[in-house]
Write a protein that binds this DNA or RNA. Structure first.
Lengths: 243, 243
DNA sequence: CCTTTGTCGATTGTCGACAACAGACAATTT
DNA sequence: AAATTGTCTGTTGTCGACAATCGACAAAGG
């Protein structure tokens, strides 16, 4: 077990949870997270879904009143987000959602590529079983056929997260998660429709096949090209003025 | 400018600063860091120098009294260290210096290798000027000849940090810094005397030469072997029982 | 008109006190 | 004696209030 930091487990289905649709948990252990974590999760989701845009001010007193808690857990939550690299503080002036610069976006995608290449190398070296990767692949294909972009993106994330997991490297996973938060945010902001859905779905199976065949060079080349292409983007589409 | 997080700027010369030996700063801008940052720096240094060993309890009230501040900045400082991955929290039970497992140590060094390889690749691709790397090289040679292990390790860190800087990639630098904190800690704890000083010093110039010659393959191979060898260590030398 | 100084509102920084919780140990009951 | 319950202690979690700082604007003085 790691520390208490959460992992943004469920990016989908958010406020649709009513009082009716959750099955009776019986007497299963009741999970209680510190307030700061719950708060951090909420704000984080607001940021990575684009509801809180880069540059938006986060005022402790306002958030405290809004969520009906004191400032202390709000402060701590924001500090968590600061460590995530999503929030920026200027002493005695304010905290705000960190503005995205073109450079940061590029660096983020480059880092992601390095992480995924590292994962692929490890998977090949260690001979891990990659058959589980087929499931998200199929889901992507279905979503692509149905033209359901949201489901496809969700399946894509599952694919890549699973790929990282298969590398069996906790530090890599943590680093990738941290990076992927920002990727989430970027995708939410730029809402890019250029690449056809079917293409995205079609990119993944060859990777799995190469991994399965233990063809390290090919697998690295494929994942490298795949993640690199994601970094090509329209610079003006998202970025606010740096200052 | 980044946020306010510090960078453990000066690992050496700590408490030797008396009231006399600092030159008159004139009317230069007086730097004031939030208490949490000063506190975090102190505790961080204590951890990475091994003065606070893995598993050691960090009790907020005790630290608050000891440093003569309230618990609030202590809490926030500890939270920073938690984000650094140096401290671990268990709700309502306590905070302690995160125990080091064999696996974590191995993963840390593997991650460092990936980062440095990435840096070398970027340096070669971008044709950065690497002549500045000679200075720490020479310092290492001198320290090696004088048998001064401390100076040599310090110069070694300068070499590698500069190498990362030359890659001109902020996110890489931040990630490397985070990793290197733990490396600091590990080195402080295991105090390993196996590798001869001269060998360490001798390993670096070939890397600079390869970079200078834009021989990417050779440079990657050299840095890869260099950082990999550091990860080979005596497992029993540092690790406490995981639980 | 320009410069300097004072004041004000907004925000974060810090503090001291109290509440909630986990674990250990004693008291009670059977 | 064993099991259950109560209690106590150490620690973190949360709160409300106050202090410090910043930026902007008004006010005073030349």
């Amino acid at each position: 077990m790691f520390t208490e930091h959460t992992t943004l487990s469920d990016p989908v289905s958010d406020q649709m949870t009513q009082a009716l649709d959750h099955a009776d948990p019986g007497l299963a252990p009741i999970e209680q997270m510190p307030l700061r974590v719950q708060i951090a999760d909420r704000i984080r989701r607001a940021i990575v879904t684009g509801r809180l845009r880069p540059g938006a001010a986060l005022v402790e007193t306002a958030l405290a009143e809004q969520m009906n808690v004191s400032r202390a857990p709000i402060r701590e939550a924001i500090q968590i987000l600061e460590a995530d690299g999503l929030v920026e503080t200027e002493a005695y002036k304010g905290k705000r959602v960190k503005p995205l610069t073109v450079r940061e976006v590029a660096e983020t995608y480059e880092m992601r590529q390095v992480y995924e290449v590292m994962a692929v190398r490890r998977i090949v070296e260690r001979g891990a079983d990659v058959s589980a990767l087929w499931q998200p692949c199929h889901q992507m294909a279905e979503a692509g056929a149905a033209g359901d972009r949201v489901s496809l993106v969700a399946a894509d994330e599952r694919f890549h997260r699973l790929l990282i997991r298969l590398a069996d490297h906790d530090l890599l996973l943590a680093s990738w998660n941290s990076i992927y938060l920002r990727i989430h945010q970027i995708m939410a902001l730029r809402n890019d429709r250029r690449v056809p859905l079917a293409d995205i779905a079609a990119n993944h199976p060859p990777i799995v096949r190469a991994l399965d065949a233990r063809d390290g060079e090919l697998a690295v080349a494929l994942i490298s090209e795949h993640t690199r292409s994601l970094g090509d983007f329209d610079p003006a589409s998202i970025v606010e003025a740096p200052a």
